[in-house]
């Protein structure tokens, strides 16, 4: 299986462990990921607030880079990158006038947006194309006894007319993957909540409150760790957790894993190979205890 890979900015810096774990998991599953050469930031849900034509154009270029590779799909591992690329694609495919103007703006890149390559998230690809039964066959260390709180993050679900992989009011993809890996999914109130990352600067107080509510809710439900398919949710819930704790009397401590890290553990990779030691809230003692790792 061969896909174009759009990593997104966080995978090069603060969330580099997601780059490491994604590549390790892809290799173990026999999935070839070809990183797009010269990809740019997707706009991260901010650029359209200044200029929506620009936001569409830079992503038309990103998608065109994938089209040049002649693959059927571009894979992302970030909810917001997925939404931004799919939003641009949706606009371009529905509006010929916009597509003509955007392609005019791409003249200097030597490329054109054609619209023949899909954008998908690793989570969706594993279910739709790789197949959960094939994933199950690769599990060498079932995550038996590990209780996971699946935190979807908004942008992998909404708006459904652009995302639409599953019912946004009651998605099940994360639970399906957790089941295949042998982990137990816990029910918790904040399963479909927002992490608040995109407004953490202008709404710091509110977002810290939300962060604490999110981790505390998973903790109260008995989860050993929270798992998310989005590096921005991960960063908000993990790196800001000590700041969020200041607003709570209760202990809100909760290790936060990236989805590929959870998969990698079941594939037999060590926490260190998956760069889990890079998290602010140390997840390794919990993993050693729950999975009897040495």
């Amino acid at each position: 299986m061969r896909y174009a890979f759009f990593p997104g900015c966080t995978l090069e810096s603060a969330e580099e462990e997601l780059m490491i774990s994604t590549l390790k998991v892809a290799e173990a599953l026999g999935i070839e990921l070809i990183e797009l050469k010269g990809w740019t930031c997707c706009g991260a849900s901010h650029i359209q607030d200044v200029d929506d034509f620009l936001a569409t154009s830079i992503n038309a270029r990103n998608i065109a880079l994938g089209e040049e590779l002649g693959v059927s799909k571009i894979i992302t591992v970030c909810n917001t990158c997925t939404l931004m690329l799919r939003t641009a694609k949706d606009k371009l495919d529905r509006n010929d006038n916009l597509k003509t103007r955007v392609n005019e703006s791409l003249r200097g890149t030597g490329m054109q947006y054609k619209g023949n390559t899909e954008v998908t998230h690793l989570l969706w690809m594993l279910i739709e194309e790789y197949g959960l039964e094939n994933l199950r066959k690769k599990v060498v260390r079932p995550l038996t006894g590990l209780k996971v709180a699946n935190f979807y993050g908004c942008h992998i679900l909404m708006p459904p007319k652009i995302m639409g992989f599953e019912n946004h009011r009651n998605p099940q993809s994360m639970e399906m993957v957790a089941e295949v890996l042998g982990a137990e999914s816990v029910e918790f109130d904040q399963r479909l909540a927002c992490c608040g990352f995109h407004s953490v600067f202008p709404a710091e107080k509110e977002v810290m409150g939300l962060t604490g509510m999110n981790t505390l809710s998973s903790k109260t439900s008995g989860a050993d760790c929270l798992v998310t398919p989005c590096p921005l949710c991960q960063m908000q819930l993990d790196a800001y957790q000590p700041d969020a704790q200041k607003g709570f009397k209760e202990d809100i401590t909760m290790p936060i894993l990236h989805l590929p890290q959870l998969i990698g553990l079941a594939l037999g990779l060590s926490p260190e190979e998956l760069a889990i030691q890079r998290h602010v809230v140390d997840a390794i003692p919990m993993l050693r205890r729950s999975l009897q790792l040495v």
Partner: peptide, 18 residues
């Protein structure tokens, strides 16, 4: 990034035309 000049052309178009 590789191809940054092309990216800057997009900005120029967005500013000057759009």
């Amino acid at each position: 990034v590789e191809g940054i000049k092309g990216v800057q052309e997009i900005y120029k178009y967005a500013e000057e035309v759009e």
